[in-house]
């Protein structure tokens, strides 16, 4: 059963700030959804291979050939903050 500590841990992993009431509501909702999802455990799937892709596609690669990319202006066009022709971010420490 998922608890508020689990929700706090997962929110940190996902880098989501949840306010206190949001945290409580989320815990209740996730518990309910996960209870529904737990229906899967009725099935013995141990002998069933997983499906990651529906297509049996393999070996899709591209040639090692340079193609034009973005101008620096376009690369930085949407940046919330720019410095030194680069993306500026708040202090990491």
């Amino acid at each position: 059963m998922i608890g508020e500590d689990d929700v706090r841990y997962v929110a940190r992993l996902a880098r989501l700030r949840l306010e206190q009431d949001e945290m409580r509501r989320m815990t209740a909702e996730l518990a309910k959804i996960l209870a529904h999802i737990d229906k899967m455990s009725e099935l013995d799937t141990s002998a069933v291979p997983p499906t990651a892709h529906v297509l049996d596609l393999v070996d899709v690669t591209r040639a090692d050939r340079v193609e034009p990319g973005l101008s620096r202006e376009d690369a930085l066009r949407n940046a919330p903050a720019v410095a030194d022709d680069s993306f500026r971010i708040p202090r990491m420490g």
Partner: peptide, 25 residues
């Protein structure tokens, strides 16, 4: 202020409740 706070607030404020729910699940 700092990067971690920026990440968490940006995503906490930027996404709506259903998106957050699914990210959490």
């Amino acid at each position: 202020g700092d990067l971690l706070t920026m990440y968490e607030r940006t995503r906490g404020e930027g996404f709506g409740p259903e998106v957050k729910r699914r990210i959490m699940i």
